[in-house]
Design a binder for these strands. Structure first.
Lengths: 234, 234
DNA sequence: CGACTTGTTGATGTACATCAAGGTACGTGG
DNA sequence: CCACGTACCTTGATGTACATCAACAAGTCG
């Protein structure tokens, strides 16, 4: 874990505390539901490996992805603070999770201010990303939204180590992009084809190649600029 | 402040700490910009009185409201954690703010775990609300979205003490609703007129009367259910 | 091998945006 | 007090970016 570049360095004191706080690791199969809407959870998780989505299913089948979740992200905080999930978390790939006991969350704040601070940092950062999604879905065209998502995924894949120079593999379908950005699959596909035709990128069966990053950035706009500060440990 | 029902009870220790942490109060005129996009801020605020919006202005004039902000809400956390605002905060009404020094944020976590915990709670709750907005804007019809906002505002006005039984005054225009829910003003107005015609509500110049709350709730769906837990002090 | 998932494409439909015009309240200066 | 501007709301006509429907192609999997 220490070797993973997406975590910040942490002190020995923090390390020993985290070791005590942690109750084990779990493996989850791709496609499984990690946390489910409407339920509570006795555990908190941080992602050690694998990708997930936080997703809201409406009763009539409509589906909105709230955000992707990557290694280093924290899962289940809402269930802990509000006694109930308001969305589900579903594994996109096989995952490895670090598990904590929920009742000890309060203990964490008392014993380790720095880790408490990190938690606030994570929650605030997640909120920042959701505000970006909201701006995109609310006020930007399909082309802008999709360029934004592509760059977002590219950035994340790079950090996670899935990406080569300009090409990367992702466990994401076009339907996922559509459900994140409030579009239909069909329209998403058409925009993607158009972008392909314009020489911006290639998307073939979960492999994406960026052909013209500058042009994509222009379309995506300043909101896509990475605010990728060093991420806290937890 | 203690008398305001939207804050939780707090201990004497917390009280004295907060008194020390606080550097003063500020009054802000309605319409003023409290925090501006792209800038940093040397201060953090909690809202003692008045309403605001957190809003993103795109270069071509498009405008997305990220959320409303009410008494008890915390402003400027993002600027503190990420050294830069990614949206502006604009006062809708005259406001009274409680001001803190940003460098002392870290001190807060060290001295008072309970207040640190509250901060995480607030950040997580804001994230929860943004996820609701995202689901609405991404996957629900104009009518659903607007019913959702009406009930949201009604709930907030009640807590803030602006609302009578079924009628309330708000410092919000139809344009604000449109910009929150990713709609045009014109279409928002048409839906509102239709709702009026259907006997659901009346909206006349910043005064709203709920005529049929059950029907509105049905349209708004379960997402509008208030998750209104007791709010922490800070 | 069929069943299923994912991607692709064209035809058609519609929920929304945009444009244009006017109406009502309220403020402000003469 | 009136003339004027301005902010907000209202309504109809027109346009379009998107959704929906339908069909098929190409993997992939048990």
């Amino acid at each position: 874990m220490r070797s993973n570049a997406s975590f910040r360095a942490f002190s020995d004191a923090e390390l020993s505390f985290v070791q005590g706080f942690k109750t084990g690791e779990v493996d989850v199969k791709g496609g499984a539901t990690v946390l489910s809407d409407g339920h509570d959870s006795a555990h908190l998780f941080t992602i050690l490996d694998g990708w997930a989505v936080r997703v809201k299913h409406l009763d009539d089948g409509r589906r909105q992805i709230i955000n992707f979740a990557f290694p280093g992200d924290f899962l289940g905080l809402q269930a802990s603070l509000f006694d109930r999930m308001e969305h589900s978390v579903e594994a996109l790939t096989d995952m490895r999770l670090c598990m904590f006991e929920r009742p000890r969350l309060w203990e964490l704040f008392q014993s380790s201010p720095s880790l408490g601070f990190d938690l606030t940092w994570l929650a605030s950062r997640e909120e920042l990303i959701l505000s970006h999604h909201l701006v995109n879905v609310g006020r930007r065209t399909a082309r802008e939204r999709i360029a934004y998502v592509i760059l977002l995924l590219f950035e994340r894949a790079r950090v996670t180590g899935l990406a080569a120079e300009k090409a990367f593999e992702i466990p994401i379908t076009q339907e996922d992009v559509a459900d994140l950005m409030g579009l239909s699959v069909v329209h998403t596909n058409k925009v993607l084809r158009q972008m392909h035709h314009d020489g911006l990128l290639t998307w073939t069966r979960s492999k994406i190649i960026i052909k013209n990053q500058d042009a994509l950035s222009d379309i995506a706009g300043p909101i896509a600029e990475s605010r990728d500060v060093l991420r806290p440990f937890i």
